[in-house]
């Protein structure tokens, strides 16, 4: 629901970093988004071309690494992909700890002069 405002924050940061580096154009934006960050990757992609229009990132490539929602079991130490959305160990059935999947990061950008 809030993907466009998230995208505006992303572009805000990218533009500042590009300007700081003396670049004239952003050609690529590389993000890391957790499966359970609350942000829908398809929606981010959907709003990208609209949000970048008339900015220095117009026409840029958007690369998104989807970080899996992972748990670690304190009993059997198994690290697993909680694909069903439950932090329950898929081996021994005990409750597990969240270790990844809530990321919301800008990894890097590529710029041109």
């Amino acid at each position: 629901m809030h993907e466009l405002s998230i995208m505006m924050s992303i572009l805000d940061t990218c533009q500042q970093e590009a300007e700081k580096a003396g670049a004239g154009r952003v050609s690529k934006i590389h993000l890391q988004i957790g499966e359970r960050s609350g942000v829908v990757v398809d929606s981010l992609k959907f709003v990208f071309s609209m949000a970048t229009q008339d900015t220095m990132a117009e026409g840029a490539e958007l690369e998104i690494d989807l970080i899996p929602f992972e748990g670690e079991c304190p009993h059997c130490n198994r690290r697993f992909h909680a694909s069903a959305g439950f932090l329950v160990c898929d081996q021994c059935g005990n409750y597990a700890k969240l270790i990844g999947g809530q990321e919301l990061n800008i990894k890097s950008i590529e710029v041109e002069d």
């Binding site: 700081k20 800008i106 950008i109 590529e110």
Partner: peptide
């Protein structure tokens, strides 16, 4: 964030940001 852009001068260069979107 000036530390991020230290080595980047060429065209088509990558700038590491590693920053939370929010």
């Amino acid at each position: 964030h000036s530390h991020h852009a230290e080595n980047n001068v060429d065209t088509g260069r990558e700038i590491s940001i590693k920053q939370n979107i929010l």
